[in-house]
Design a protein around this nucleic acid. Structure first.
Lengths: 234, 234
DNA sequence: GAGACTTTCTATAGCTTATCGAAATATCGG
DNA sequence: CCGATATTTCGATAAGCTATAGAAAGTCTC
């Protein structure tokens, strides 16, 4: 198996294409990602990935025994959605602003991800043993979002809703709208990633806030939290 | 082509299986629907459909030249989501109640449909020439929902939102939550079809209503509209 | 009963994912 | 420097999928 070495420079049989990229595993992931973005996971074939990486179809299987393993590797590189939720769930700021920041980060990441959330979920469900991390991450995000909502309900910032259900609705709206961003339906207005993220989170908070007029203030507070807790300052 | 006759009783070469169901086209749709519900569209093969209907794999192609045509026929049988929107968009009742009724009917139909909305959309997008009706229906529903929202904004029932964006969010939430009903994520609470429909529509209206306290009254009004305009009394 | 029409069959092409063993190179011990 | 071993790629191919082509087996019409 090639899973051990990742940077083998010049061993093994040479490629027919002549290319000698340093890290085949990373090269395959890179090319596959570009193809997934352009055509989607299901519509991208191993032959196309192989050709883009300068290999024959069957050679890709030396690095990834199954097509889903490429997706899995891609997922593990794109972690970090939870950082905001982990940082903000126990923070002292108002719950509404923390919820806004967490949901906005989630929505933005769904839009920025190379793969449609539902295509991801589809593959994850067909290979649960390999995608346990996907479900664990989702479950943790849901739990932390519900916890923040509960804090907001207790503090009186938010209406007296069921936190679990409200979290499900908030994440479901993020997911439903990332789809509209990614695959605009013909005839409908198209949105930017930030448009749909803001639309999604504004809608959720408008439904939860006890007082609608607080929304602009919440947005401002959240903007501060988001820059302070963004993963960019690692 | 077999598209002309639909009830051919006893012509043609007899089946090896011996079965002699009266209307092969309907029989194929029925069996395919059951398989789509159980396994999803992509995971159901033409061999399985054929076997369930008492035919060989290639014989199904006499009735449906492509696998997507079965889905298309299935879609045409499950129309009627728009009836509520068509009836209520110009109705004199308060806009909030009409919006509630329309969105609840849409959410309920998404849950009751034999196929996941996104799987439908996926196939429709790959065969746009055959699924024009799907996109037209969606576009019309969106337009009518936006129109009702605009009426509500003008009358002061609803907050001063952008009707187009609000309609996109409302339908997107319905779609995102039907997914949670249909494919519960491991570890999360599971909901009934009515649970998710109510959660979705309550969330949308809570975000749009100028006054949250009006929600229970809107629900009651909407219940009246829904029974009065339900397609069951055709 | 001959010919046309309808429906199903068998066979197969072409595409996909995935496996297997051989081939071609680098590396290491002597 | 040379043979054994490890690494990487290749070609061939199996098995499953959608879809097509043409033969086969009935009914129907006159």
């Amino acid at each position: 198996m090639g899973s051990g070495k990742t940077a083998g420079a010049t061993a093994g049989r040479p490629r027919l294409s002549g290319s000698v990229g340093g890290a085949p595993r990373q090269e395959i992931i890179r090319e596959a990602t570009a193809l997934f973005i352009a055509k989607g996971y299901a519509e991208t074939t191993m032959s196309e990935i192989a050709h883009a990486a300068g290999l024959r179809q069957s050679s890709v299987y030396y690095w990834f025994a199954r097509k889903e393993h490429i997706l899995q590797a891609l997922l593990e590189e794109n972690r970090g959605s939870l950082q905001m939720a982990r940082a903000l769930e126990p923070a002292p700021e108002p719950a509404a602003a923390r919820l806004y920041a967490v949901l906005h980060a989630d929505a933005a990441q769904l839009c920025a991800s190379p793969l449609d959330f539902y295509e991801f979920e589809r593959v994850a469900r067909s290979q649960p043993q390999n995608f346990g991390a996907f479900f664990e991450d989702y479950s943790e995000l849901h739990r932390r979002a519900a916890s923040i909502i509960r804090q907001g309900v207790d503090s009186g910032e938010l209406r007296a809703v069921d936190p679990e259900a409200a979290a499900t609705a908030a994440l479901g709206l993020n997911e439903g709208l990332q789809r509209h961003y990614r695959q605009p339906l013909p005839g409908l207005h198209t949105y930017t990633a930030d448009d749909v993220s803001t639309l999604s989170v504004d809608t959720t908070l408008a439904s939860l806030l006890r007082n609608h007029d607080a929304l602009p203030g919440v947005r401002t507070q959240a903007a501060g939290l988001m820059t302070a807790n963004s993963p960019a300052e690692s």
